[in-house]
Structure formats: structure tokens, C-alpha cells
Simulated assay, not measured.
Amino acid sequence: MIDCVIIDDEQHAIDLLVQHISQVHFLRIAGTATNPVKGLQMVADLKPGLVFLDVQMPHLTGIEMLKLISKDSHIILTTAYKEYALEGFEHAVVDYLLKPVQFLRFLKAVNRLWTIHNSLRPASEQDHYVFVKTEQKGKLLKIDSRRITYIEGLSNYAIIHMDDKKKIITYLKLKELSESLSARGFVRIHKSFIISLSHLTAVEGNMVRILNEEQPIAIGDAYKKDFFDFINAKMLSIPPDSTIG
């Protein structure tokens, strides 16, 4: 569950977001504020996982507030003006929503955050093991997911690469594997690749390096934004001009 705070000087805008949040099972309202100064204090006190932040407000703008809110809280900007989007992304916000916020666009933004949130959560001990179908009919293989370095998709099957260089062929599609493994620290970065974040050693432009693998893996255009949102969220500090991606 992700606790949310909404800061917007227009009550009707808050009411719409509250309605959207009520329809998403992993979101919960922690508080709302029409006064940005009071909203800033609310965020400091409640430490929510997500802040919906209006850009244009009296006394203290959303862009100014971005610099004051702890990086432990993810930010989604809301405003009626498209020109603020670039500046917002320079501060590593999760997304930028134009008012009036449409539910489908809202859902896309919060689902992106849910992916990041699941990737950050440590897997419990009982979650380390998974079972996969193998080439041999009727045979299931038990795998320690902590030892998977990356997964390569090939048509209707996938190759699971292990940390001992062993390769396991399973008749599952990457979409199924991605949905099953996202909470265990795996991220899909390409239509053909899922990587283990624990075995990720470096990001070099639009490529990633995996432990003990000589060849880098490309980051696909369709997955680039979500991946770099996650990377930026994990950076120790993000100066305004250094957000990557």
C-alpha cells in the first residue's frame, strides 16, 4: 500500500484525485492540503510514499516545493500547463499529469510507481524460490531467484541465465515472467530481456552491465522511461542538471 498526500490550491482538483485514488487498490489517502506551506509540513510529518503536487500555487510553487520534499517521497506533478513538464522531470518526478486529470492517464502514472515500489521492496525468505516448466514434459524445476542474472526471451520460450553460467529453458513468455518476478527485484528493460537488479553492475548510456557477463544488454525505447525512473529514485542525490535517461 502506498500512502498519498495531495497538495493543490483548488479543492475540486483534490476531489478528482481523491476519486481516482479510491479506485486503485494499492493507493491510500493520507492527507490533503490547499495551502502549500501546510502541505509541506504534512509531507514532513506523514512521510507519504507519493505526493500529488500542483505546480502553480500562491506563496510556494510546486517546483519550489520539489527542492524541499524528501527524496523518500515520490512526486507526481499536476498542472494545466505543459511547459512545466521538462522542469519537473529535471527533478526526477515520477510523472506529469495535465488537468483535468483523466483516470486512464492517472492509472498509467501510478502503475509506473507501483513497478518502482515493488522493485524496491526486499523479497521475504519464502519468496526466493520459483518453479518453472522445463523442456521435459511434466517436469518443474525449482530455482533460487537470487541466482538468476537475467532472462532472455525467444518467441514462445525463455532462457533463464544463472550466476554459475547455467542456462535453463522454460516455456513461458517474458510478459508472464516479468509479472511474476517484479516483486523479487527484476525489471524488464527490453522486449527480449528481463534483468536482476541485484546483478546489475552499471548503466552505460542506453546499455546495462550484468555481473559476470561480457556483453552489455540494450535498454529498449519502450522501457527506457520506467527503468530510468527507477534508477533516478535510487540515486543518493540528484542535482537539477544531472538526472539521467
Results as ranks from 00 to 15, higher is better:
Val101Pro: 06
Ile151Ser: 00
Phe26Ser: 13
Arg28His: 13
Val43Ile: 14
Asp95Lys: 02
Phe227Leu: 02
Asp3Gln: 14
Ile21Asn: 12
Pro216Trp: 05
Asn156Pro: 05
Leu154Gly: 04
Arg147Asn: 01
Gln11Cys: 02
Ile169Gln: 04
Ala222Gly: 10
Leu53Asp: 07
Gln41Cys: 03
Met42Asn: 11
Leu181Cys: 01
Arg112Thr: 15
Lys175His: 08
Asp229Trp: 08
Tyr96Trp: 08
Ile151Arg: 00
Leu16His: 10
Tyr171His: 15
Leu140Trp: 12
Asn35Ile: 05
Gly39Asn: 07
Ala85Phe: 03
Lys67Tyr: 10
Thr149Ser: 11
Ala30Met: 13
His12Ala: 12
Ile238Cys: 10
Ala222Thr: 12
Pro239Lys: 15
Glu10Gln: 05
Ile210Arg: 06
Val51Asp: 12
Val51Glu: 11
Ile194Met: 03
Val94Arg: 02
Gln11Glu: 14
Phe228Ala: 07
Glu10Ile: 03
Leu236Met: 13
Glu152Trp: 04
His161Tyr: 11
Ser124Val: 08
Tyr84Thr: 09
Ile160Ala: 02
Lys173Leu: 13
Ala123Asn: 01
Arg28Ile: 02
Val130Leu: 15
Ile195Met: 04
Trp114Gln: 13
His20Asn: 06
Ile2Tyr: 08
Arg188Lys: 09
Ser22Cys: 01
Thr34Leu: 11
Lys224Arg: 15
Pro239Ile: 12
Ser196Gly: 02
Gln41Phe: 03
Leu120Met: 12
Ile75His: 11
Ala109Ile: 05
Gly88Val: 10
Phe186Val: 01
Leu211Val: 09
Val93Phe: 09
Glu83Ser: 09
Ala92Asp: 04
Val203Met: 09
Ile75Met: 07
Ile148Asp: 06
Ile189Lys: 04
Asp54Cys: 08
Glu125Tyr: 00
Ile159Tyr: 08
Ser155Ile: 05
Leu113Val: 15
Val94Ile: 15
Asp127Thr: 07
Tyr84Arg: 09
Leu77Met: 15
Leu197Gln: 02
Lys71Asp: 10
Leu104Pro: 14
Lys133Ser: 01
Ile29Glu: 15
Ile210Ser: 02
Phe106Val: 13
Asp241Ile: 06
Ile159Asp: 07
Gln102Phe: 02
Ile148Pro: 04
Ala13Trp: 08
Val24Ile: 12
Pro58Asn: 14
